[in-house]
């Protein structure tokens, strides 16, 4: 497979600094306190938030602050071959990194002795689910009315054919040279998630961070739009057609 042709066009027809089509919808689940749905290319992910609420089991509660629990889970039908629904090593890791990426934004100290539960279900996976899941979880938290210092937007950068690219898809992740998912708080200008699978030179790393942040800003605009559409009915000049950017 040609990951990058001589014209700088990638295997799915994108340019090197282009994200996939992104669509975010806030709300949608009736029984959760807050929820969001995201389509990030072929990724389809739902996030639901409960809380702040009582902590069970009680011994997990903290008298000084609230706690955040995140469960990232892939449906058995989310990938080509059936995935065992039991939490895998990878899912436990992603739950942990998403939790740690959200924690700087969520003002848990306002609710001591409580928990905020975030449930993320991946319905369809196509590479870059942790970024898409983090973006959706952030919208779901805002939808639940949980105080946050900033939104968290996420997008990956990477390297294929010795070229730094934005938003790595499944093929590029498998056959490429590096994948670097990033979570970013746009107003505070802080990175909350940064992982790297592969090898980058310091220059390539700098470039990845730079275009990764650009990707996060694009996702952030769509997060804003999703919340505006639900809460403000497109008043205030915000909002749009409900669809995300097109390729």
């Amino acid at each position: 497979m040609v990951l990058l042709d001589e014209n700088g066009i990638r295997c799915d027809g994108r340019k090197v600094d282009e994200t996939r089509r992104v669509m975010i919808k806030a709300g949608g689940l009736k029984n959760a306190d807050g929820s969001a749905y995201i389509e990030f290319g072929d990724n389809k992910i739902v996030a639901g938030v409960f809380g702040p609420r009582d902590v069970h089991p009680k011994h997990m509660s903290d008298t000084d602050t609230g706690i955040l629990r995140v469960r990232y889970h892939m449906e058995p039908f989310s990938v080509g071959e059936r995935k065992n629904p039991a939490p895998s090593r990878r899912e436990i890791e992603i739950s942990k990194v998403i939790k740690e990426a959200l924690e700087p934004a969520v003002m848990l100290e306002m609710f001591p002795r409580t928990v905020v539960d975030v449930f993320i279900e991946v319905l369809q996976a196509d590479g870059g689910t942790r970024c898409a899941a983090l973006s959706a979880a952030s919208v779901a938290l805002a939808d639940a009315g949980i105080p946050m210092r900033d939104m968290v937007a996420a997008c990956a950068a990477g390297k294929v054919a010795d070229t730094v690219i934005l938003d790595v898809n499944n093929e590029e992740d498998q056959a490429g040279q590096a994948d670097m998912p990033m979570g970013y708080m746009p107003t505070l200008e802080k990175i909350t998630l940064l992982q790297l699978d592969g090898i980058l030179t310091p220059e390539e790393y700098e470039k990845c961070v730079e275009i990764g942040i650009k990707g996060c800003m694009q996702v952030y605009e769509l997060q804003k739009k999703a919340l505006s559409e639900k809460y403000f009915n497109n008043e205030n000049g915000r909002g749009g057609s409900g669809r995300g950017q097109k390729r």
Partner: peptide, 28 residues
């Protein structure tokens, strides 16, 4: 209308409910 993280003002105002101070001035 605002969402979390939106800067409301950087003027000399006192932050009250549901806002937080970022840096010295920015109220978010």
């Amino acid at each position: 209308y605002v969402i979390p993280g939106d800067t409301i003002t950087s003027g000399p105002y006192r932050p009250e409910q549901n806002v937080t101070l970022v840096g010295d001035k920015k109220i978010v």
